[in-house]
Write a protein that binds this DNA or RNA. Sequence first.
DNA 1: TCAAAAGTGTTATCCTTACACCCATGT
DNA 2: ACATGGGTGTAAGGATAACACTTTTGA
Lengths: 323, 323
Amino acid sequence: MNQAPAQEQAVVVDLTAVIVSIAGDQPCVLVRPRQGRKAVLEALPSGPLELRHRTLEAGLRAWVAAQTGTSLGYVEQLYTFGDQDRAPDHGDGSRVLSIGYLALTRAGKDSAPGETVWRDWYRHFPWEDWRRGQPAVLRDLEKPLRRWVAAAKAGAERTSRKERAGLAFGLDGATWSDERVLDRYELLYEIGIVAEARRGSRAPAASPAEAKLDGLPMAADHRRILATAITRLRAKIKYRPVVFELMPPTFTFLQLQRAVETLAGVRLHKQNFRRLVAQQGLVEETDAIIAGTGGRPARELRFRQEAILERPAPGLRFRPSAA
Amino acid sequence: MNQAPAQEQAVVVDLTAVIVSIAGDQPCVLVRPRQGRKAVLEALPSGPLELRHRTLEAGLRAWVAAQTGTSLGYVEQLYTFGDQDRAPDHGDGSRVLSIGYLALTRAGKDSAPGETVWRDWYRHFPWEDWRRGQPAVLRDLEKPLRRWVAAAKAGAERTSRKERAGLAFGLDGATWSDERVLDRYELLYEIGIVAEARRGSRAPAASPAEAKLDGLPMAADHRRILATAITRLRAKIKYRPVVFELMPPTFTFLQLQRAVETLAGVRLHKQNFRRLVAQQGLVEETDAIIAGTGGRPARELRFRQEAILERPAPGLRFRPSAA
DNA sequence: TCAAAAGTGTTATCCTTACACCCATGT
DNA sequence: ACATGGGTGTAAGGATAACACTTTTGA
């Protein structure tokens, strides 16, 4: 194809998994400790693509099985990360690509084998959880955001920064969108609030005040991959019945609502959510009634596979509740 | 990170571009001839990732500039293809990944430099163009599809095949969805109707009747990459203002409608489309009036950048017209 | 008895869809 | 005159959001 292979370069490809489950009211991701240059950091399960892997997905499943003992169900490819400066950990000049995957599983918080642990993803993104109202960090983030906008000299650059910050964080009358997780992370990375941005010691060290605004860092660029996964998942529950991959086979309306709220990081309006789910035909009642829910016993529900055939976009197109 | 690099394998990464533009009423993709094993096939512009490329996207832009003389505007990553049997052209056992990108450009049909050519993408997917009603091929495809369903022994496999075929091709009362381009291609690949599926000489040669049902093949797995691009683009015009990347700076309502119809492969309802676009605030009128449209002169429109800030999902959420 | 959850009913409002109809130009 | 595209009005139906209210359990 190409007569000048002079510069052609072999690269190593890492397969990286964001494995998500729900435990109680926490959205969890499976991580394992990895020794960084200064401290032990949390890393996503991952391993290099090998010749024996017939497909990329098969390679991912093999690595995850080896490292976590888990056999994955639902898996989808997210994105391929390959920028040269994205992972200061590998500073040896060689090229490492990461192909990120999103996996959904029912495995509970207890069942993390080997050295792996389930972690609430909001520990890494404290500004993303609006279930108890606007998160406290977010108010404190507004000041550095506005400072960053003002730091550009007036004109195109200033306008562009103002727009980006407004859109991503819902400033100046813009509404907060649960789906802009990656936009927000990348903006905070650019500003230098996120610890990973300062690893290459290019950016100035954060003031102690700013350091408190950041969530928990992760190894390499895994936090960016996690942000990509959350973005994809939050978008996808709205037009595909993916929540059910995270639910037990049977559940109640409220449990389903809580699951969606957990992922989306918002509170939903109870009555309307029930009606939405019911009339979409996504679930059907079993004969059972579940007691001990803390109130009146609830009808037990199960997912209706057939719904996929009937609706063009069978998801939970919720809107956050006003309250 | 991993103590046993025994099997670690270096791979070559190809950056592949699906460059789309609209010429008249044709959705076009930029291709260049490539010598296959038997014949000259159309290939997407592509080249290997090199050390000098700081980012994947930069590498892609460099290769496209070198091969086509085009400097790309809008670019987004699509998917990374890495299955071992996906590209029978490279049969030497080495691993080649392809990272596919979608690029949108205003360049017209005339301006294809070097050995490149603009091609109507429906030549490769004749079943995807419903602008003049149900495409003729589709009626003929129904028979082999049903034969494939019936070929499975009754039970889970048969049911699954029936569902897949129904969903993808709108059989048995299911509605045709313009977004299932990749599903349809992959199903036809699996059945063996698509020529690429028979390259490895695993599948039986098609009967002359079946060969006529297939669209034009492409080099390697480029047709699959193109199908991925069309799928993404058809989905995206509905919630992001990406059509405007393909439009001239100013245009009329009908031109905009034709552009969307060209991409989506469906006819739209005129009055409702106008209202939809107008009330979304996606466009604004210039002072000019355009004559010579074939009827009454039309108001000239331009895209409103600000619309992106105001709407959460500023796209053209059209539905196909009944007629 | 009371809090918490389950569940029903109703209304105002908005958006979509479809239909009907008039306007201005080129041939 | 008439075909073609440009452009407005409006009414029916469905989906949504917000509200109020009843029922059933466990502590």
